[in-house]
């Protein structure tokens, strides 16, 4: 049976791993290649490496770090952050990423999803989407690291992205990111049951219970988490053991 994936996420700025709360108040969380390797050894199923500054300079740094990490990390690497063009996409794949996530650029010019899917295959195109709950209970799509509200309705946008060729969705709840208060389970469940591609939960994991809930109740395929691993609340292995005890299929 296909196992549930745990994906530690490295947000990268100035060549270092950082982590904030709701995309702000960044704290240093360690060395990129060393952390990637540690998570690989602990049994991570994938490693996410995201450029959070979205500058050309940082993107090159991130590509170089991916290239270095890929020499000793033999699980898939998901890269992203600030990807604007097909050549950004290609640069990250060539550096050793297996998948690339696109966020703002896809909203600005959705054709990049279809072009990337055609060139590199849907399996390497991940739509990253930051979303915020509205007062009326709906969800809106944010871009530019959560700074800009596009006014797009989340479900309509996800539908379009998948039709254009996104092979996976990485959904981050802006309201909860970095808070360690748990994922937005009801939202995850609605998205997972509605759409025919794998869903990665992101934003808010504070405990192994939160991650178990994303799988058991939120019905997601993978869970991405940063804070709980960086600040050594749990090892990846401890989380996976917890999931196994809950009856979930995991690779240990």
């Amino acid at each position: 049976m296909l196992s549930k994936r745990i994906i530690p996420c490295l947000d990268i700025k100035d060549g270092r791993v950082v982590k904030g709360i709701r995309f702000n108040e960044l704290r240093d969380a360690g060395d990129v290649v060393a952390l990637a390797h540690r998570y690989y050894e602990e049994g991570a199923d994938e490693i996410a490496m995201l450029d959070i500054t979205a500058t050309v300079e940082n993107r090159r740094t991130v590509a170089a770090l991916i290239k270095e990490a890929a020499k000793s990390v033999f699980v898939p690497i998901l890269a992203g952050g600030g990807v604007r063009t097909l050549s950004d996409f290609e640069m990250l794949l060539e550096a050793g990423a297996d998948k690339v996530s696109i966020n703002t650029a896809a909203v600005r010019e959705p054709k990049i999803l279809s072009d990337a899917a055609k060139l590199f295959g849907s399996q390497s195109v991940v739509l990253a989407c930051d979303t915020r709950r509205k007062a009326d209970g709906g969800y809106t799509v944010l871009v530019e690291g959560g700074k800009t509200d596009t006014g797009l309705e989340l479900f309509a946008w996800l539908k379009e992205s998948i039709e254009r060729g996104a092979g996976e969705i990485l959904l981050t709840s802006w309201d909860l990111d970095g808070t360690q208060q748990g994922y937005d389970i009801s939202l995850l469940k609605r998205v997972s049951e509605r759409f025919p591609v794998p869903l990665i939960a992101s934003g808010g994991a504070g405990t192994a219970e939160d991650i178990a809930a994303a799988f058991l109740e939120g019905k997601v395929d993978a869970a991405l988490a940063a804070s709980i691993f960086h600040f050594r609340k749990y090892t990846v292995k401890e989380v996976k053991q917890f999931l196994k005890n809950k009856g979930l299929e995991v690779r240990l």
Binding site: L2, Q123, V197
Partner: peptide, 11 residues
């Protein structure tokens, strides 16, 4: 299947 592609570790 409900979700295609299959992505992840399978036994």
């Amino acid at each position: 299947a409900k979700k295609v592609p299959q992505v992840g570790f399978n036994s």
